[in-house]
Simulated scan of single mutants.
Amino acid sequence: MSYELKSAGALSGEPCRYGESRLLVRGPQRSLAEPYVAFLGGTEVYGRFVEFPFVDSLQSRLGVDCINLGSVNAGLDSFVQDETLTGIARGAQVSVLQMLGAQNISNPYYRVHPRRNDRFLQAQPALKALYPEVDFTEFHFNKHLLCTLRDISGQRFEQVREQLQRSWIERMSRLIEALEGRVLLLWLRYHLEADAGFPDEPVLVDRAMADALRPKVQGILEFRAESAAAARDIAGMVFGQMELPAARHMIGPKEHLRIADALAGCLEPMLPRK
């Protein structure tokens, strides 16, 4: 097997910012003057280590500008709190919104970083009361925190899980409402064999949560993907010498083409005929 040992900076589409947004998204930066489709999501929508993410493939297939607002390590809060990107998505003919993990949102138990939502910032009083034996200064990432809480007490962890899922539905509903319901949800599911903590992506998102949003959107595309390692899809990815372990967990170029095929079939009927 061969693969590109280059810096991720060698990718086409350097990160860019739109307007007053502080969130780095996938370039190239595109004009918003013509009709377009917007794509909001995290690392998978951004297409980390992939030269031509599925958003690029859809641009040529749909014949309409496709604005990639995906950002590495972004979670749902990244977009809910970003009026610039929300405004861009609201101006789209339709927005594709990735169903991101429920672990990476601020909630009554803990706060996350406002842009890099995978980063744990602070435990709330409710979590300190629920887990008085835990020193929360030891945690920097939400997954590590949640794995530890579950290992200490599965029963108490159920309270945290239920609250995260309630917060996720509320936050998703708020974003869908801000986009005026012109939304196709992308439920991009895949399994990480090496992750014994929460191996299924998106984390803590289940069918009941998807069904709660179904009446609010134009559709939900559930797509089962494989990581680059599982799909033997590392060839053609672009990454530095030390980034191979991370690249193995990402979605590779062949899977991006499969996602584009599936999305094209959903989006074409939603767009005005030329």
Rank of each mutant, 00 (worst) to 15 (best):
C266M: 14
R232H: 12
K274E: 15
F141E: 13
R214D: 00
A208R: 05
D195R: 06
A8H: 12
P202F: 00
E255V: 06
E170L: 04
D261C: 05
E180A: 07
P272N: 07
V217A: 01
L127E: 12
R232V: 13
Q81F: 15
E243S: 04
H191K: 09
G75D: 06
C266G: 00
L62K: 09
Q163G: 05
H191W: 12
Y46K: 08
V50K: 01
L145I: 11
R116N: 15
E193M: 06
R22L: 13
E177P: 00
H249F: 12
G87Y: 02
A38H: 00
A246D: 13
P125W: 13
Y18D: 03
P245S: 13
Q81C: 11
H140C: 10
V203I: 10
A196Y: 11
L97W: 04
R232C: 14
D65A: 15
E14V: 07
R48T: 14
P272E: 11
R61W: 09
V45D: 05
E162K: 02
Q98D: 05
I152C: 03
T86C: 11
Y46S: 07
G265A: 10
L185M: 09
L204T: 09
D195W: 08
Y110N: 03
A102H: 04
L5N: 11
Y190K: 09
C16A: 06
A196D: 13
E243Y: 08
R26E: 01
L175H: 00
M209K: 00
M1T: 14
L76F: 14
R156Y: 03
Q163W: 00
L127Q: 02
V55W: 03
P108E: 09
H144Q: 12
V203F: 04
V160G: 04
T86A: 15
Q59I: 13
G47I: 09
D77S: 05
A126V: 14
D118R: 14
M237N: 02
R182A: 14
I169D: 00
A10D: 12
T86H: 07
A231I: 14
A102P: 05
R273D: 15
E34D: 15
E138L: 14
E158V: 06
F157P: 02
A212D: 00
E255P: 02
R150W: 01
F223T: 03
E255S: 01
A126F: 03
P202A: 01
L100H: 01
F79Q: 13
T137F: 10
R115Q: 15
V72K: 13
D56Y: 06
D211T: 04
H256G: 08
L145M: 01
E268V: 12
L267E: 03
L11I: 01
K274C: 15
M270G: 10
L271I: 13
